[in-house]
Design a protein around this nucleic acid. Structure first.
Length: 337
RNA sequence: GGAUCGGUAGUCCAGCGGCGAAGACAAGUGACUGUAAAUCACCCACGGAGAAACACCGGAGGUUCGAGUCCUCCCCGGUCCA
């Protein structure tokens, strides 16, 4: 239904199929991207690049639901386990390393497949968003944080109002992180970030891409999430987090923002019971899935693959059907034979 | 059987006789251009709606200008005594 419509639109508008080829497979957590991505990679001769903000970290396997060596079935994966958990990571770093990986894959004559649930990262690569070259000014950021601490969100927001009214309009005072970034951007470049964003929004895709979004009925998705969290627990999530804690990982680090990690860390620090922590993980993972869906709905030219359309079939059969659809779309775009 | 406390949204829970019903959670929707598994916003008590009026706090009556709030009876649940 939704997928079909999108494809029609693509055909009619004949969106310029320019740029190097790229396959994207994404969707909310726990829809079952991993297995499908392997079939896809095998079918098209592709290498997978993980578009996931947590799986880049070493020692975070259970909680991030990282693919195992065995599950890879020989398919090459990139951007997994590239950082220690105390290192910072962000879109810009991702974009750079992803582009490097893509270049390498083309060099080997293979097709890059971006697989993962971090929509922002995917967008950064697909549209080749230009981020500021400036290093971030940690001191200035800290200064703003302290200002907000003392004077409140609203006062900080007023600062933004003065230099960049458009951004102030768009960002609510409560969203301190984005208010700070907007101020920081202005501080660094002398240009309002709203202008920059406006410009970047116009960018066409940098690739001849197929953007597949795997989804499912909400209830089914939520059930899968709960089941998966339970599995993580039995696989030893607590021990994994304990090990991270022993390595010196603390709340506040980028890696420890991961779902499942911050909650278990709380538990290990004596905040609440294990049961409460588990329930919170489930809850927040559901919220997260919802946010992901919101993001993908907003992206243009996506092809939806909805499991609920194949509800009578087994997962393997569903995957087989969806693989067919993906190959069909890729052929139409001239990405594969 | 007697005593007593309570029945308000999916859940928990506020509510001096002026309530078209507070708060929290869940659910839903959305934003997002260097922390994105982050951060934030909106919405949420039948229906209908531009506004008004009607309807709403277990059920039925009553008192009152006015009842979720007081009274009576009934139904349901907790606790205590038998």
């Amino acid at each position: 239904m939704a997928g079909e419509e999108k494809r029609e639109v693509l055909r009619e508008t004949g969106q310029s199929a320019s740029g190097p080829p790229l396959l994207i497979l994404t969707g909310p957590t726990a829809v079952g991207k991993t297995a499908l991505s392997i079939s896809l990679a095998k079918a098209v001769g592709g290498e997978i690049i993980s578009a996931d903000s947590m799986q880049v970290y070493k020692h975070m396997n259970i909680g991030s639901a990282k693919i195992t060596k065995q599950e890879m079935q020989g398919v090459t994966h990139h951007l997994l386990d590239i950082l220690e958990p105390w290192e910072d990571f962000n879109v810009v770093t991702f974009q750079r390393r992803c582009k490097e990986a893509i270049a390498g894959i083309y060099g080997r004559g293979n097709l890059p497949i971006l697989v993962g649930g971090t929509g922002f990262y995917i967008q950064a690569v697909l549209r080749d968003i230009a981020f500021t070259e400036n290093e971030d000014d940690v001191a200035y950021r800290r200064e703003l944080e302290q200002f907000a601490e003392k004077n409140g969100d609203v006062a900080l927001h007023e600062k933004l109002q003065q230099v960049d009214a458009a951004s102030a309009e768009a960002i609510p005072p409560g969203n301190q992180k984005r208010v700070i970034r907007a101020l920081e951007y202005f501080h660094l470049t002398g240009e309002p970030i709203s202008l920059h964003n406006e410009r970047e929004r116009q960018r066409p895709d940098a690739y001849n891409a197929c953007y597949f979004v795997l989804t499912d009925a909400r209830t089914a998705l939520y059930e899968r999430i709960e089941k998966r969290v339970d599995e993580m627990m039995s696989q030893g999530l607590v021990a994994e987090v304990q090990a991270l804690k022993d390595m010196g990982c603390r709340r506040g680090q980028t890696a420890m923002q991961g779902l499942g990690y911050k909650e278990i860390l709380d538990y290990l620090d004596g905040i609440g019971t294990l049961e409460e922590a588990v329930n919170r993980i489930k809850q927040e993972t559901r919220h997260f899935a919802k946010r992901q869906l919101t993001w993908f709905r907003r992206e243009r030219d996506v092809v939806w693959l909805d499991r609920s359309q194949y509800s009578g079939k087994s997962r393997e059969q569903q995957d087989a059907c969806m693989l067919e659809v993906m190959l069909q779309v890729a052929r139409e775009k001239g990405i594969i034979e």
